[in-house]
Design a protein around this nucleic acid. Structure first.
Length: 358
DNA sequence: TGCAAGTCAATACC
DNA sequence: GGTATTGACTTGCA
């Protein structure tokens, strides 16, 4: 029970189960009351809810992460190592709720709406400049499926289009956007389009397995020597210090398998449970990983998790039952998180930084 | 300067 | 209401 794993388990169950909610039965929880994912993201990882969701749903191979990209995982590890992490988080939640209620009461007594109070720094990150001026963001252009498909095809034909091509493309698609948005479409989303194409290529090639190699640059980027692709036999020896917010866990063994993770799990081409699938195919699991063997991950992902709260190690189901696709995603994310935690702990157990791996 | 990675935050979805 | 998606934006690097 004193282990970091247990603490994390408590935290997850505790947060989503929200034992505090019952304490405030007289007052309806505020709409901005942070959810588990949101609170964890904002207070522990320093990320917004959307970023946390993306991080867990689509983790990238460690060696592909920049120092900044690794930071959330380092924070996660430090949090896991703190035996009082859960208590602190719950305290934080209590304080936030208290502060919210205080603001709410004062604003009500002042005759102001709650909305204005909530847009403070507690709930908004980066929305205001240091000077207090609201930074105006361009309105989002919502692309339709046809437009996305066209962009994808355009990318396939020409990943690095010229400005003229961009304008032509925008015009062909009848995009009511300016040139900057065209640039956005072509450059900002490039990695996402590439990721989608990568998955499609793998699916077309029959999935990722030892020795399999696709034709995309990203596939070619995987080491395929020694018969087992990306087996981590090579090392760049890039060891960073913890003080530098990097835990120095360079490991290439996950590269190809990581990429195949989502593909295989979504294809469902295995008898394994989705959780095991994600674990065993994910590079995050790595050699020696207990994930999928013992089933002792923080988030146990049995089928029951999607139907009831039968097991207190399940990721709690919030709200109404979700569709199969959603459940799969949740399972996938939980499996990813299990692997991440496992690897963080494994890394932390080694005193010699050169032995750290992730 | 161009690009990729990372993140925010609006909005869609369930 | 919580979570997922994704366009807009920022940052860092070659």
């Amino acid at each position: 029970p004193e282990s970091p794993l247990s603490s994390a388990e408590e935290s997850v169950n505790g947060l989503a189960g929200d034992p505090l909610a019952s304490q405030s039965s007289s007052l309806k929880p505020p709409s901005e009351d942070p959810s588990g994912q949101r609170l964890f993201g904002e207070t522990i990882l320093g990320l917004t809810q959307g970023s946390v969701s993306d991080l867990l749903a689509r983790p990238k191979p460690w060696h592909k992460l920049s120092l900044k990209g690794r930071e959330p995982f380092v924070r996660m590890q430090l949090w896991l190592q703190d035996p009082h992490s859960v208590e602190k988080l719950m305290d934080m939640k209590r304080l936030e709720k208290k502060a919210y209620m205080k603001r709410r009461l004062s604003s009500l007594s002042d005759g102001h709406s709650v909305e204005g109070v909530l847009s403070g720094p507690d709930y908004m990150q980066g929305s205001q400049s240091p000077g207090g001026q609201q930074q105006l963001k361009k309105a989002r252009v919502v692309l339709g499926p046809e437009e996305k498909e066209a962009l994808k095809k355009a990318y396939q034909q020409k990943p690095y289009p010229s400005p003229k091509t961009i304008e032509e493309l925008a015009s062909q698609l009848n995009l009511k956007t300016n040139f900057d948005t065209g640039l956005n479409l072509c450059f900002y989303s490039r990695s996402r389009i590439r990721r989608e194409l990568f998955i499609e290529e793998i699916q077309a090639a029959g999935g990722v397995g030892p020795g399999s190699e696709g034709g995309s640059p990203s596939l070619r980027g995987c080491k395929s020597g020694e018969g087992d692709s990306c087996d981590g036999t090579e090392s760049e020896g890039t060891v960073e210090t913890r003080q530098g917010l990097g835990i120095g866990l360079e490991d290439h063994r996950g590269a190809c398998k990581d990429q195949g993770m989502e593909v295989e799990s979504e294809a469902g081409a295995s008898n394994n449970s989705p959780a095991q699938l994600d674990c065993t195919t994910s590079g995050l699991a790595g050699p020696g990983s207990s994930c999928g063997q013992s089933g002792l991950g923080i988030f146990s992902l049995t089928e029951a998790s999607s139907t009831s709260s039968a097991s207190n190690t399940n990721i709690p189901s919030s709200g109404p039952a979700r569709n199969p696709r959603d459940n799969n995603l949740r399972k996938k994310k939980a499996a990813n998180l299990n692997n991440i935690i496992h690897r963080l702990e494994k890394a932390a157990s080694k005193e010699d930084p050169s032995e750290w791996e992730f």
